[in-house]
Nucleic acid binder design. Structure first.
Lengths: 205, 205
DNA sequence: GGCGCAATCTTGTCAGTGACAAGATGCTTG
DNA sequence: CAAGCATCTTGTCACTGACAAGATTGCGCC
């Protein structure tokens, strides 16, 4: 994988350095966490000089801002297609599992610039998706305070995803599909009461 | 500027350098996150030479391992006094709010050495506290699978705490006491059904 | 009391890093 | 085809973590 990027580049310009650095960064973060990120290392992986990435991302915080923004954008697109609140939660968890590097960075605001316009826009889009699903909840299913229900749903999904990524649920969920486990969890929170104490696990849709 | 720590130390030995470096580290993490940690900066704050901390913590990972271990120990002590599962959740959230630096480090295993014996012991103690509260749950309150109920409770508390610390709940919870807000959240998850639907009289089981 | 040892701290050093400045290269557009 | 600009390179500086070797001191033990 290193060949093409490191040595085969004969042109002065890389072609798509921004994307190359971003994906390399995601690889490193997924493997060793954001603290293992080194701009110079990313430059080496892309086969360019040590100062090349700075032109696309300004500095380290800029790179991580781009990662977070891309993450919020991906999340927003995922949530936009959700059927209901439970499905949105499942998608939230699936997003975290499939894009762990994005997810990790998104929720460590000290790593990037939280006031970046592109990032805040993407984050607003993601939040809008969640808000919509909460508004669509049946009145009996969400308790007295819709805002509280939203915080509860988000907390449950976010906590499950975070614990999963920090390897704290290896015991309880074992080798099962995280999204399916979370579907069961969500059933405990928001559901009709018979769904809450189910007789048959092959639940309704 | 920091007279006592920087200049007034007349003895060759610091006295309690380990504690001094640890608290300085917690200050920095609370203010700017773990990525802003610099061993040399901590040494300066403690008024010792740049290599002094290494003798107590070996390296950066060693320092953060000590922080995480101390965090798990504090958490275990807090959870040990809990009345029930809901109270344990409230204490979990309160711990995160009162010890944000510990909490942040604890759940970023890539920052420290997760197999450190002292740390794993403290973590086991904390987990034991949670497990005990789950076992004490009334059968109707926890659904069909106790393990699932535990994951749900932990996820809810952990997600709420994490979102809180990453400044993602500034809008919804406003200036309210986080612990109280969480108490309401916990009411949505585990409760008798009439507590869950305050007006709804029919409590099927 | 004092000797020796180990813990603690200091000084010195090296490679790696982020950030910045100034120059080289080549695409693009008028 | 020439000017302009985005892209990339080379060079540099202060800072950092890690390690090695020496200085200082507290402490147990005779």
């Amino acid at each position: 994988m290193a060949e093409e990027q490191q040595t085969d580049r004969r042109t002065y310009h890389h072609g798509d350095l921004r994307r190359a650095v971003l994906t390399a960064a995601l690889d490193v973060i997924r493997a060793d966490g954001p603290s293992a990120l080194s701009l110079r290392d990313l430059a080496r992986r892309a086969g360019v000089s040590h100062a090349a990435p700075a032109h696309h991302f300004k500095d380290r915080a800029g790179l991580l801002t781009a990662v977070a923004a891309e993450g919020y954008d991906l999340l927003a697109r995922t949530l936009a297609d959700a059927d209901d609140l439970k499905d949105a939660g499942v998608r939230y968890v699936r997003f975290a599992v499939e894009h762990p590097a994005h997810f990790q960075v998104m929720f460590q605001p000290d790593l990037y610039r939280p006031d970046d316009p592109e990032l805040t826009a993407a984050r607003a889009r993601a939040a809008e998706g969640l808000r919509g699903q909460i508004a669509g909840l049946p009145a009996e299913g969400r308790g007295p305070d819709a805002r509280l229900a939203g915080v509860a749903a988000w907390s449950l999904a976010h906590g499950f995803a975070t614990l999963l990524l920090s390897h704290n649920l290896a015991g309880p969920v074992g080798g099962q599909d995280p999204a399916e486990v979370f579907r069961a969890l969500a059933g405990l929170l928001f559901s009709t009461d018979d769904e809450r104490h189910p007789r048959d696990p092959g639940g309704p849709r």
